Simulated scan of single mutants.
Amino acid sequence: MNLADIPLIDQHAHNVLRPEVAARYPFAAAFTEGYDEEIVNYHARHTLFYRRSLREIAALLECDATESAIAARRDSLGLEKLTQLYFQAANLEAIYLDDGLETESILPISWHEKLISVRRILRLEVLAEQLIPQSEDFASFLARFHSEIDPPPSGVIGFKSIVCYRTGLNVQPVTFEVAASRFDEIKRQLNNQPLRLVDKPLIDFLLQQALLIAAKYRLPVQLHTGFGDPDLDLRLANPLNLRSLLEQPQYRHAPLVLLHASYPYMQEAGYLAAVYPQVYLDFGLAIPSLSVSGMRAAIGQLLELTPTTKLMYSSDAHSIPELYYLGAKWGRQLLKEVLEQAIQDGDLTGDEAFAIATAILRENALSLYNPQL
């Protein structure tokens, strides 16, 4: 089964870093979720992901598989030409960018649009952090928050929440009065420093306000789930914590996209997608960050229960353009292997498997999102 000619919709990725920012970090920093100096400067180079990736990058760039040779080749090409090379090698049709990661360090969406079709995913917590210092009281803040996302801004085809990072996925109902009191407390503590919103009642309240708007427009809401950098508590990143939210009928028509295969909670995520109509999954970050056998197992476990109409490709690429290519390479390869095994097992016919691959790599995202917005 050849999946190379299927153009990919990368339904969750991040902007590339500005060159002067990227120059301050070791190349290996983009290949780890850790940020401790010992991890970044030493241990990150000794993962199966990094060792494999150096060889794959070198093969595409036609240079030796060493950091120095790759760095020289990257410099000779320049960032724009380098990114274009990776996008073409990945056979990418479009990328859906969450531009809320390291907002001061990234290249704008307009830079990416020179190379590929781009649609925007709006990060809710970043919006709130921008609006709170500008607002005198909670009522005016909430009115402004609503106005910024209802209707969704031009080019925005989904929302994104990092509630998983900030306070965990056990999202609970919060009254207006409680949210207002938390807003007032945050305002009292502001000291002209950039705001980092970590207040659970207010975050939970704002996410549920956004879900009501998402339900109104049938707009997907992406949620970080599973592993990530040490800022999150992995115990609270299990998507089963979302059950009380999923049971609320007012959010029934807001599609929730659980990102990153929910690793290591693939089976839990697959169960939720199997029983809740509004739950969808993707396998970015797990692909390509795991070992080859780990990636194969992750996709296989997702498909144990997940309807194939509910699983989507993404890379979760960030910082450097290599990650777009590596995600595409291994997303296709491991999906192919898992589906071919399903053919051998008698789960699928060959024609069914190819149709499912096409759906996961592009059609499901095109159906769920409205990229014409």
Rank of each mutant, 00 (worst) to 15 (best):
D75N: 14
S262R: 02
N370C: 15
L361P: 14
S291L: 05
F138L: 08
P255L: 04
L92N: 12
E363Q: 15
A317E: 07
E136Q: 15
Y271C: 08
L232M: 13
M266H: 11
A29I: 03
T103I: 15
K200Y: 10
A58S: 08
T358C: 13
A261M: 00
P26R: 00
E340W: 07
Y280M: 05
E67R: 04
I162N: 11
R144Q: 15
N2T: 02
L207N: 05
E322S: 02
R188D: 07
F354Y: 15
Q11D: 13
P288H: 11
A342N: 13
A89D: 12
Q208H: 00
E177D: 13
V156T: 14
R188Y: 03
Y42I: 11
R73Q: 13
E102Y: 07
Q11A: 10
L85W: 11
G346R: 01
L303Q: 07
K336C: 07
L339H: 10
D347F: 08
L361G: 10
P133Q: 09
K114Q: 12
A286W: 00
V16H: 06
L339M: 06
H112E: 12
A4C: 03
D199Y: 12
A353N: 06
R74Q: 14
Y25K: 11
G158A: 10
F141P: 12
N2Q: 11
R188F: 03
R45L: 04
A90Y: 08
S76Q: 14
N241K: 15
P288A: 12
L339Q: 08
I9W: 06
P239W: 07
F27L: 14
E80H: 03
L323K: 05
A90N: 05
N41G: 15
L195M: 09
N2D: 13
L219H: 01
P321M: 01
A58V: 02
N15D: 09
F183W: 11
C164W: 03
V40Q: 10
P220M: 04
N170L: 13
S154H: 14
L368R: 08
A274C: 11
S262P: 04
F205W: 09
E37C: 07
A274V: 06
K160E: 10
I149R: 01
N15Q: 14
D345H: 04
A65V: 08
N2F: 05
D75G: 15
E129L: 07
D10S: 06
F141I: 10
P371E: 00
S367P: 06
V221N: 00
G346I: 00
E337F: 00
V174Y: 06
R235Y: 15
I106Y: 02
A89P: 10
C164H: 09
P321F: 00
G346W: 01
G226T: 06
T308R: 04
G270P: 07
T167C: 12
S154W: 08
M266K: 03
L202K: 11
V275P: 09
D36N: 08
S110E: 02
V171K: 12
V257S: 03
F159I: 05
V163F: 11
T32K: 01
R235P: 07
N91D: 01
L236C: 11
T308G: 00
E102G: 05
L232C: 05
Q84E: 14
R243P: 07
T83I: 09
S135C: 11
L234N: 13
L236Q: 15
P194L: 00
P151C: 00
V163I: 15
Q11P: 06
P264Y: 00
Q278K: 11
